[in-house]
Design a protein around this nucleic acid. Structure first.
Length: 489
RNA sequence: GCGGAAGUAGCUCAUCUGGUAGAGCGACAGCUUCCCAAGCUGUAGGUAGCGGGUUCGAGUCCCGUCUUCCGCUCCA
C-alpha cells in the first residue's frame, strides 16, 4: 500500500467485493451516506453486537438490556435538548466559500470586541443574538451580522448568503392521514438511543428490582442528518449505537467515570487488538449535559477518530424528563450513608454513559484485520489478502473442504459439516483447487479450514489449517469441534 | 456547499487523432487422485452512469445531470 488513503480504498473495495458492505440502493445510483450490510458483513456485525451485548449483560449482574422503539414522544426531544440545541443555523461567505455556524461567527466577533476593550458592546451583541436564535429569526440574525459589518476571517468580506437551518433530526408524520399543517403529528427518528433508556429508567428499576449502581444497555438504530456525510461507514445517516447508561449515586460520578473509561478500554483490548491502536481524547468543551467526557479513539486508516464516547451526564436527562413529564424520576436509596448513619434517601441518579458506534466498531475491526501479504518466493510471485479477524468475530468459523470431490471424500466432509453447523458457522466447499479455496477463506477471514484427504478414510484424521500462519496440523475429526469452540469463546 | 479528478463486463483496465466494444482476473459447468491464487475445455455477463446535441456515423466531440474519489468546510 502506497499510503493510508489507498489502504482505505482497498478496504472499501474488499468490503464490497466479498459481500460485507454494499452502497445502499446502488442500482438507483446509491443513497448518500447509507450502506447495506451483505451476507458476511451482517454476520460480522452481529458477532460484534453479540460480543458487546453479552459482555455488558451476561457478564455484569447489575446491567440489563432493553430494546426501546425508535419512535418516541416528540416532547422527549424537547426535554433532551435535541430540538433546540442542535438546530444550528449556518451561513456561507460567498467569496471565501466558507461556511460558519451563525452563533460561532457572531461569538467570534464579540470576542474581538472584548479584546478591543468594547465589552459592553460585545455583551449587547451576544444578548441580541441569543434573543434572535431563540425565536428562529434568521432575517434578524443576518441583519445583525450586516449591521455589525462582521467579516469572514478568510476573505475579509461581508458578502453573506442567507442563513439556513441545519436539521439534525429526521422527522416523519404519525397517523394514517397526511396533514402537513399539523405539527402535533410530527415524530422524530431518534438521533440517539439513550433517551429510550432514560424514559424507561423507572420501569426497569422497579420491575427488575435494580439497586443503584446499575446499568441499562441497548443496541439500536439512530438517525442523524450530517452536513457532509462521507468516509464510508464512519459517518452514516442511519447507524447503530451500542449504549449503556449506568445509574449512580450523586457524588460518585468521578470514580464511576474512571471505572468505565478503564472497563471499556479493556473490552477493546480483550479482542486482541493492540493497545497502541487506541487512545483517549478528553473533551475540553463539554456538551450541555455533561460534566466530564472523553472519546476512545481508534487509529483508522484515515487517522485517529472517535470510536466510543464515555460521558458523565450528571442528572441532566432524568431531571429534564422529570420536568417535562411531571413524573418523579427519583430513586430511594436504602443504603446507609456512613456520614449520617441514615439511608441516603431519595435522589435523581447521576449517569455515566458509554456509547459506541457499532458501524464504527465494524470499521475498526475491518481496518485492523485487513492485511495484504506478499508470499513471493524466488521462483514465483504470490500474495494474498487476509482478514485477520479475532476468531470470535469472524463471520465463518470453519471451512470444510474435501481435497477432491471423489473417492467418498465429500461424504466424510458433509458428515463433519452436519456435526458442527449447529455449534458455529461452517462453510462447505468442494470446487476448485485446495489452494484457491484456502485463499478465498482468507479473504473472508475464516480462521480455520479443515481438509478431508485420503488419509482421512483410513484413520479418521483431517488437516486443520490456521488462517494467520497458514500452518497445518493433523487432528482427529472428533477433536474438531472442541478446537474451534475453544478459539471462538 | 465550493474547487479538482473520474465514471467501458463482478474486478483491473484497453479501444491510438469519432467508423457499429476487447483482454486479464473472477464467476458458472465439466476435466485434472492437485494440501496453499494464475493446468485444460466450454459457457454466461456490457444499449460505455443517465439525458440531450453535433455528425452519414460517438464510448470517443459539446452541453446538462447523477454518482464516486481527493482537497476545503462541518462534526453534540
Amino acid at each position: 500500500m502506497a499510503n493510508d488513503s489507498n489502504r482505505f480504498q482497498a478496504i472499501i473495495s474488499h468490503c464490497k467485493e466479498y459481500g460485507f458492505i454494499f452502497p445502499s440502493s446502488e442500482i438507483y445510483d446509491g443513497l448518500q451516506a447509507v450502506y447495506d450490510y451483505g451476507q458476511w458483513g451482517s454476520e460480522l456485525k452481529r458477532n460484534i453486537r453479540d460480543y458487546w451485548w453479552n459482555s455488558m449483560t451476561r457478564m455484569h449482574e447489575n446491567i440489563v438490556g432493553i430494546d426501546a422503539a425508535i419512535f418516541m414522544h416528540p416532547t422527549i426531544w424537547k426535554a433532551s435538548g435535541h430540538v433546540d440545541n442542535f438546530n444550528d443555523p449556518m451561513i456561507d461567505n460567498k467569496d471565501s466559500k466558507k461556511r460558519y455556524r451563525v452563533d460561532h461567527l457572531i461569538e467570534g466577533y464579540a470576542e474581538e470586541l472584548v479584546s478591543g476593550g468594547r465589552d459592553s458592546e460585545a455583551a449587547a451583541l451576544v444578548k441580541s443574538m441569543e434573543t434572535l436564535l431563540a425565536s428562529d429569526d434568521f432575517g434578524g440574525l443576518k441583519k445583525l451580522i450586516e449591521d455589525h459589518k462582521i467579516k469572514c476571517p478568510i476573505s475579509g468580506t461581508s458578502n453573506w448568503t442567507d442563513i439556513r437551518q441545519f436539521n439534525l433530526m429526521f422527522s416523519t408524520e404519525f397517523g394514517s392521514t397526511v396533514s402537513t399543517e399539523d405539527e402535533d403529528n410530527k415524530v422524530y427518528l431518534r438521533p440517539e438511543t439513550a433517551q429510550g433508556i432514560f424514559v424507561n429508567f423507572l420501569n426497569v428499576q422497579k420491575t427488575g428490582r435494580m439497586k443503584i449502581p446499575f446499568g441499562i444497555a441497548q443496541v439500536g438504530k439512530a438517525f442523524r442528518n450530517e452536513i457532509v456525510a462521507r468516509q464510508f461507514i464512519f459517518r452514516m445517516r442511519e447507524f447503530e449505537q451500542m449504549e449503556m447508561q449506568f445509574f449512580i449515586r450523586p457524588g460518585t460520578q468521578q470514580e464511576w467515570y474512571a471505572y468505565w473509561k478503564n472497563e471499556r478500554l479493556q473490552w477493546h483490548k480483550s479482542l486482541g487488538i493492540p493497545a497502541e491502536k487506541f487512545r483517549f481524547h478528553d473533551h475540553v468543551k463539554l456538551a450541555h449535559y455533561a460534566d466530564a467526557a472523553c472519546d476512545i479513539e481508534f487509529e483508522f486508516p484515515i487517522g485517529f477518530k472517535e470510536l466510543e464516547g464515555i460521558h458523565s451526564r450528571t442528572d441532566f436527562d432524568l431531571r429534564q424528563h422529570q420536568e417535562f413529564s411531571k413524573k418523579k424520576m427519583q430513586y430511594f436509596d436504602n443504603d446507609t450513608d456512613p456520614s449520617t448513619g441514615k439511608p441516603y434517601g431519595n435522589y435523581i441518579p447521576y449517569v455515566i454513559e458509554t456509547s459506541i458506534g457499532l458501524d464504527r466498531m465494524f470499521l475498526a475491526v475491518m481496518s485492523y484485520a485487513y492485511t495484504e501479504e506478499d508470499l513471493s518466493t524466488p521462483e514465483k510471485k504470490d500474495d494474498r489478502v487476509v482478514l485477520k479477524f479475532p476468531a470470535r468475530l469472524a463471520p465463518v468459523k470453519l471451512a470444510i473442504l474435501p481435497l477432491t470431490k471423489k473417492d467418498g471424500l465429500p461424504e466424510i466432509a458433509r458428515g463433519i459439516l452436519e456435526d458442527c453447523r449447529s455449534s458455529f458457522y461452517c462453510f462447505y466447499e468442494e470446487k476448485d483447487t485446495i489452494g484457491k479455496r484456502y485463499r478465498r477463506m482468507d479473504a473472508l477471514g475464516t480462521p480455520f479450514c479443515v481438509t478431508v484427504d485420503h488419509q482421512t478414510r483410513e484413520d479418521n484424521t483431517v488437516t486443520i489449517r490456521h488462517r494467520d500462519s497458514m500452518e497445518q496440523e493433523r487432528v482427529s475429526i472428533d477433536q474438531l469441534k472442541a478446537i474451534v469452540t475453544k478459539a471462538i469463546i
